[in-house]
């Protein structure tokens, strides 16, 4: 066991963890942050995506100790209080959520893309979610949701400037 210090959704944590524990298991089992999903545990479905220092990463492949000192955002940290992120709002509005198991990963990847580029084209949107498997939606509604979120964010940026 080794001590791990990191920040998750703005809150500091210090915990002793085993070197074999993945970040995904750390989040789900040690911190009860079950919003991040285990879809394959092999880095092949994308469901376990979290933001590590503002970059989407697969938490199932990463030993938790590798995240020493990192700032991590999970799906639980995307909304600000009761105010959902435009990506979350758009996913609901466009019917892009059915069973919802891939939704946290789709949101994490969408939020990351739109933070860098709030005017993505179709290919950029497809690329953004291409590493996450969804078995319910056929993806088109998720793509539409990301375009809608982008337009909302552009409008907000415009209104704010």
């Amino acid at each position: 066991m080794k001590l791990l210090n990191l920040t998750i959704n703005g809150r500091k944590h210090t915990k002793a963890v085993s070197p074999s524990m993945t970040l995904l298991d750390f989040l789900r089992e040690e911190l009860n942050l079950t919003g991040t999903k285990n879809g394959c545990d092999k880095g092949a479905c994308g469901c376990c995506s979290v933001m590590i220092d503002d970059k989407p990463m697969l938490s199932c492949l990463l030993p938790a100790l590798e995240a020493e000192g990192a700032a991590i955002t999970t799906i639980e940290g995307i909304a600000k209080g009761n105010a959902l992120h435009p990506v979350q709002e758009a996913m609901i509005e466009m019917g892009a959520i059915q069973c919802g198991f891939c939704t946290p990963a789709m949101v994490i990847n969408g939020v990351h893309m739109l933070a860098k580029n709030n005017n993505p084209d179709d290919d950029e949107v497809k690329e953004c979610i291409s590493a996450t498997v969804c078995r319910c939606t056929g993806y088109n509604s998720i793509e539409k949701a990301l375009h809608l979120a982008a337009s909302k964010m552009r409008r907000a940026a415009h209104d704010g400037s």
Binding site: T36, E76, Q88, I92, G95, G100
Partner: peptide
């Protein structure tokens, strides 16, 4: 009309408790 899924908000914020959880 277009009616939103009532469980979508909880799923969007990662709050839904699946059997796996």
């Amino acid at each position: 009309k277009r009616i939103k899924k009532p469980d979508a908000p909880a799923k969007a914020i990662g709050k839904t408790r699946y059997i796996n959880d």
